[in-house]
Design a protein around this nucleic acid. Structure first.
Lengths: 233, 233
DNA sequence: CACAAACGAGAGCACTGCTCTTGCTTGAGA
DNA sequence: TCTCAAGCAAGAGCAGTGCTCTCGTTTGTG
């Protein structure tokens, strides 16, 4: 079915890829709201209605771009993590966070598409879940390594949050203490607060040396998760 | 010029307000991208071209709504702060953060308009700055009170960030130590990371008891700023 | 009282997402 | 090998958008 069952199937794959490529170009240039099916078709020398053979609607095309963006970000973050493989958890944590920031600055519209306000009336289908989880899994892995290595400081957990914390830990990282999982999730969200504020102009006239500011902030984030004093690395 | 110089001027103010009201209604219902000048005009019984006498473009109308949204959020936060006036800084900090979260949940599209991805091709004019600063000023004020009361723990500051930290402190809160101002700005951004992740669905299937989670997270945020052990309040 | 400025209405331009119909092409089963 | 349905591109068309321009009318001021 899907595997090169003929010239036709191969052509379909190629055209689909060409559409996505051109759409990604337009997304990077002008943003999601200005992505136009007609303009994509025009650029590809086809008529707009032909494009609907490949993507049933504009939203479906956007969904494909969303998954690609998550994957691109995930790959970048994983590459940065591997490049820092020899270092201690804190250094790896910072490396991943900085990779996220750099990717966001380099792909502002893609970042806005996946972490900014979702396109109105549009809710991401479950298809995007695995791609979206990659950075989070990376952060969990770093903390897990640190935890196995020498344990972590466990920030206190209020009583009313304990059941939820245990549920989240069971879901995401059964081998980590609930206290850690809770602050880890918060740090994950806060990382994107830092990136988003810089990217969307909230730091204009406030923060100038954003690189140094960011590094310090994500270091503090790691501190909050208990990730300090890696094995002297 | 601007003050009720006649029936005409008054009518202009009323029509302008009516346009904004209807636009705000549509924004709340369908989001910024679906806000249509023609639909607003239609609902108001006027023709679309007449609307351009009041707002030169769709972006100008959006800018007006952005300022209103900032003000609405600012008022809500300030009201929550006053309601907690008797309490200690930590309690007031949490009260303000929770007010921000509640406002965001109650006004998702307005929140997305001001803190989500900015409308492509659109950059907010300086007009919005004072309205946008209100929540930040509130947080600074809380920390200032705490600092005057009994001082704060000062998280260490890396050497490469010191000049920037001193510059930021001089700009925003000359009476606070640079270390505090730096983590305060980071906490400010991180607050919006937490809110945005909940609002934009990133916590789906991850965090269930979001109220308790949020309270704990902003408590940790306050802890990072040095805001613990208020005067027993 | 006159006259310019402000205003509402309408037509029109260029664009959008999407649907439907009309033919042509391709590839798999009889 | 031939047939015939499925896949496909093209074009016309619908309803909607932001925005501009023109044309009378109203209004307030010098």
């Amino acid at each position: 079915m899907s595997t090169a069952h003929g010239a036709r199937a191969r052509a379909r794959i190629e055209v689909t890829a060409a559409i996505k490529d051109e759409a990604r170009r337009q997304l990077a240039a002008d943003g999601a709201a200005r992505l136009s099916l007609r303009a994509v078709a025009r650029e590809l020398g086809m008529v707009s209605s032909a494009l609907y053979r490949y993507f049933p609607s504009r939203d479906d095309l956007l969904t494909a771009l969303i998954i690609d963006a998550y994957d691109s970000l995930g790959e970048t973050a994983e590459a940065a993590h591997e490049a820092a493989a020899g270092s201690g958890p804190l250094h790896r944590w910072i490396a991943v966070c900085e990779a996220v920031r750099r990717w966001a600055l380099g792909h502002p519209h893609e970042y806005a598409l996946i972490y900014g306000s979702p396109v109105p009336g549009y809710t991401a289908p479950d298809t995007t879940v695995p791609a979206a989880a990659r950075v989070g899994l990376l952060l969990i892995g770093i903390v897990r390594d640190a935890y196995r290595g020498l344990g972590l400081a466990r920030p206190p957990l209020p009583a009313d949050l304990r059941p939820e914390a245990e549920r989240m830990a069971a879901d995401l990282a059964p081998d980590l203490p609930p206290e850690t999982v809770t602050v880890l999730i918060a740090a994950w969200a806060q990382l994107y607060g830092l990136v988003g504020f810089e990217l969307f102009g909230q730091f204009n006239r406030v923060v100038e040396d954003r690189e140094a500011f960011f590094r310090h902030a994500v270091g503090q984030l790691a501190h909050g998760v208990g990730l300090v004093y890696p094995q002297k690395g």
